Amino acid sequence: MSHIVVLGSTNMDLVTFVEKAPQRGETVTGREFRTIPGGKGANQAVAAARAGATVSMIGAVGNDAFGTRLRSTLEQAGVDTGRLRTTEGDSGTAHVVVDDDGGNAIVVIPAANGTVDHLTPGDEELIASADALLLQLEIPLGAVLAGALTARAHGVRTILTPAPAQPLPVDLLNATDLLLPNEHEVATLTGRTDPRTAALALLDEVPEVVVTLGAAGCLYAARDAEPLTVPAPEVTAVDTTGAGDTFAGTLAVALAEGRPMPDALAWAAAASALSVQRPGASESMPHRPEIDAQYTS
């Protein structure tokens, strides 16, 4: 089995389902509210574990009820939480509004995630043992950079999801093997609205880029290959929350197992398509037999 390490956030998603998301200054009536374990780091860890990898999580939760549930959810998914520390105070939260078209708007409160600003003893050894390191930007940038540099020093593939989108230091880009933005994030990073043009521009900084395009699939660009578009299965979306994290976690497993990039992208797209047909983030993520069935259908 491949070994994936995730350095990132763990949040409790506070999710409201509405017919139409409110505009500024508007009040609407929702039909349902749920608390769902999430956070981009934890989501990617669950996705990778359900896709068949051995997964370890580096991060932090608070010493509140949310923290207890978040840790339990990861462990139930088979994720090793030995490096998930508990801090005084609140766990991170994400306040999510999901409309009837499956779209979402999210406000993240870092809380305990904000304390993950450096690597602690044992983190480097864990990263060095991995086949791949998954990173996002919901923890302080200093820790993300430290993780990427550690992975690079030990020859571990680094996959970075640049979300929430923000300017990235050159040192971090240079230590990234695969950059995995969505079409909005790649536009923020490059100032270019065309995903293909933006992806090609990023190859000056990173060797490989995958831009996720929602229902349109994904675009792959590399320094030594022609750009490749992989379509997504046609499905009816219920909730797109966590779809990108499902894609990232599953892609990391596929690449760690040695699948060729086109096959790995199609397998990850199949997993993402399954996730959007269910509500929630971590709760919607498929298990490997489901992914295999969707991929071959």
Score class of each variant (00 low, 15 high):
91 S>A: 04
130 A>F: 13
117 D>Y: 01
160 L>S: 05
172 L>G: 01
93 T>W: 10
207 P>T: 11
127 I>C: 09
88 E>P: 02
91 S>E: 02
198 A>R: 12
217 G>P: 14
166 Q>I: 08
161 T>D: 15
181 P>F: 10
145 L>V: 04
196 R>I: 03
225 A>D: 08
151 A>L: 05
191 G>C: 00
147 G>A: 03
187 A>D: 14
111 A>C: 05
196 R>A: 14
161 T>I: 05
179 L>S: 08
183 E>M: 08
207 P>R: 01
123 D>Y: 09
160 L>H: 10
108 V>I: 10
197 T>A: 15
130 A>E: 12
107 V>T: 13
167 P>S: 11
204 D>K: 09
149 L>I: 08
200 L>Y: 05
184 H>A: 11
226 E>H: 12
173 L>A: 06
187 A>S: 15
128 A>N: 08
164 P>S: 07
210 V>N: 07
164 P>A: 05
149 L>S: 12
208 E>A: 09
170 V>M: 02
213 L>K: 13
128 A>H: 09
205 E>N: 05
142 G>C: 02
172 L>W: 04
89 G>P: 08
210 V>P: 09
212 T>W: 01
172 L>D: 00
184 H>F: 11
129 S>Y: 10
111 A>Q: 10
203 L>P: 13
151 A>Y: 08
157 R>M: 14
205 E>C: 01
93 T>N: 06
196 R>S: 05
189 L>F: 08
146 A>Q: 13
112 A>Y: 01
193 T>I: 13
102 G>T: 07
96 V>S: 03
119 L>V: 06
101 D>H: 14
189 L>C: 10
225 A>G: 03
189 L>G: 02
175 A>Y: 06
183 E>W: 11
225 A>Q: 15
179 L>P: 11
215 A>I: 09
194 D>V: 13
223 R>V: 07
198 A>L: 14
94 A>D: 10
196 R>F: 06
120 T>Y: 09
124 E>T: 09
112 A>R: 02
114 G>D: 11
138 E>I: 04
194 D>T: 12
127 I>W: 11
121 P>Q: 07
217 G>E: 14
140 P>V: 06
135 L>Q: 01
